[in-house]
């Protein structure tokens, strides 16, 4: 159950950012945060990593999107990454 915080960078020559934004807003897995003419913060909340990738791809392909940066990835999992990665951990 990944949750990622992404930053979208817009193509500065693109004129219809508002349209792209409304498409983002319409997507239920995406929450749109702070935006300006160049960048926009979104949070993607999906049930699986595969879905997460799909959404990522979808966003990338939206008109006017020049790039995406990952600001944060969180897993809604009880085990913290630290302890689950230890050889000493017991399940």
């Amino acid at each position: 159950m990944p949750i990622s915080g992404l930053v979208i960078t817009f193509d500065q020559t693109f004129d219809h950012i508002d349209e792209t934004l409304s498409r983002l807003r319409a997507e239920p897995a995406i929450e749109v945060g702070a935006c300006d003419r160049q960048q926009c913060a979104i949070v993607v909340d999906t049930p699986s990593q595969a879905d997460d990738k799909k959404i990522y791809q979808w966003v990338q392909d939206l008109p006017g999107v020049a790039g995406i940066q990952v600001a944060f990835v969180g897993f809604d999992d009880d085990a913290t990454p630290d302890s689950s990665s230890t050889t000493d951990s017991v399940d």
Partner: peptide, 16 residues
């Protein structure tokens, strides 16, 4: 009890 938890060994323990 939680599903997964870390185990601490006493001081000077060799590799697990």
């Amino acid at each position: 009890p939680p599903r997964s938890f870390p185990v601490f060994r006493p001081p000077g323990a060799v590799a697990e």
